[in-house]
Simulated assay, not measured.
Amino acid sequence: MSEEKIRVLIVDDQRLMREGLRIILEGAPDIELVGEAENGLSALQIAESQEPDVILMDIRMPVLDGIAATERVLQQALKRPRILLLTTFDTPELVIEGMRAGASGYLLKDCSAEELCTAIRAVARGQILLQASSAAQLLASLQTKPVAAAPLSVAEQLGLTTRELEVLRLVTLGQSNTEIAAALFVSDATVKTHINHIFSKLGARNRSQAIIKARQLGLSRE
C-alpha cells in the first residue's frame, strides 16, 4: 500500500457532494479515484469490477442505503475494501449500525479535506477511525444500555480460552496491541494471534464489532 496509490470509490446520492469529494481526492498524490456511484446498488457493481481499497460510503441513499450496501459489499467482494462512512448525522445509533455492518470508520461530512485524506489513509492501513464525538456517543450509548451479566459458560460456548477472554476485555478498554502485550508480558505477535482468534469466534470483522459483541454478551470488563 505504501508504493501503490490507494484506490477509492465515492458513493453518494448528491452530485455536488461527489464532485466536491472528487476534487479533494484528485489533489492527493497517493490516492486514485476509481469510480463514483449514486446509490448502494451501483456501488456493489463498481466495487466488484474496480476492487477499490477504500469506499467513501454515504449512509442515507435511495435504492440501497449505505449501511446495507456496506454489509453486502463485504459479503460479496473477492477483495474486501475498507469502508469509511460519510454522513451529516452524528448519532450513536448510526455509528453502531455502521460498525456492525463492517465499516472501518465514520466521518462527518463537515470534516476538512485534510481530515478526509488522513482518514482514508488510516482505514487503508487497517485502522478503525471514529471522530471523537462519535466515539464518545458510541460508548455512552453502550453504557446506558446494560445487558444481563453473562455466566462464564458464554465464553466457553464461544470457544474463548481464558487468555483470549483476558485479551478481549483489554480490547474493550481501548488498549492497543502493544499496550495489551505489555500488560500480559507477551509479544505483539502473540496478541495479534489472540485477537484474530477472538474475531473468528465472535464473528467480528474488526475491533469495534468485537467490543460491541463483548458488551452485548456481558464479556467486557466494567
Score class of each variant (00 low, 15 high):
Val8Gln: 01
Ile198Phe: 10
Leu165Lys: 08
Leu129Cys: 09
Glu51Val: 09
Val73Met: 12
Thr118Gly: 15
Thr87Tyr: 03
Leu84Gln: 05
Ile31Lys: 00
Leu170Asp: 00
Ile120Met: 04
Glu32Asn: 08
Phe185Ser: 15
Ala122Gly: 08
Lys79Asn: 11
Thr190Arg: 04
Val11Ile: 04
Pro146Tyr: 03
Leu158Tyr: 12
Ala189Thr: 15
His194Lys: 05
Gly174Tyr: 07
Glu4Phe: 07
Ala140Cys: 07
Leu219Lys: 09
Ser133His: 08
Gln216Gly: 14
Ser134Lys: 08
Val8Lys: 00
Glu38Val: 13
Pro146Asn: 09
Val63Asp: 10
Val8Arg: 00
Leu202Ala: 04
Glu156Phe: 10
Val171Gly: 01
Leu94Tyr: 15
Ser187Met: 04
Met61Lys: 05
Leu44Gln: 01
Ala69Ile: 01
Gly218Ile: 04
Ser200Asn: 15
Lys5Gln: 11
Leu41Thr: 05
Leu165Gly: 00
Ile180Asn: 03
Leu138Glu: 05
Glu97Ser: 11
Gly126Trp: 08
Gln75Met: 10
Gln75Trp: 12
Lys213Thr: 13
Ala210Glu: 02
Gln14Trp: 06
Val171Pro: 01
Ala28Asn: 00
Asn206Gln: 13
Gln14Asp: 06
Met61Ala: 00
Leu56Asn: 07
Leu33Ser: 00
Arg7Lys: 13
Val63Cys: 00
Asp30Met: 05
Ser208Arg: 07
Arg100Lys: 15
Gln45Phe: 07
Ile67Leu: 12
Gly159Cys: 10
Thr88Gln: 07
Ala189Asp: 14
Val191Trp: 05
Glu164Arg: 06
Ala182Pro: 05
Ala124Trp: 08
Ala119Ile: 05
Ala155Ile: 08
Arg15Cys: 08
Pro52His: 07
Asp90Arg: 10
Ala214Cys: 10
Met17Asp: 08
Ser133Asn: 12
Leu94Met: 13
Leu107Phe: 06
Ala103Tyr: 02
Ile55Phe: 03
Lys213Gly: 02
Ala136Leu: 14
Leu74Glu: 04
Glu114Pro: 00
Ala132Gln: 14
Gly102Tyr: 09
Ala214Glu: 02
Leu21Ala: 01
Arg125Ala: 15
Pro29Ser: 14
Ile128Tyr: 11
Ala68Pro: 00
Ile31Ser: 02
Arg100Met: 12
Ala148Phe: 12
Gln143Lys: 14
Gly174Phe: 05
Ser112Tyr: 07
Gly203Thr: 06
Ala37Lys: 00
Pro62Gln: 03
Gly66Leu: 02
Glu114Met: 03
Glu38Gln: 11
Ala214His: 01
Leu139Gly: 05
Phe199Met: 13
Asp188Ile: 09
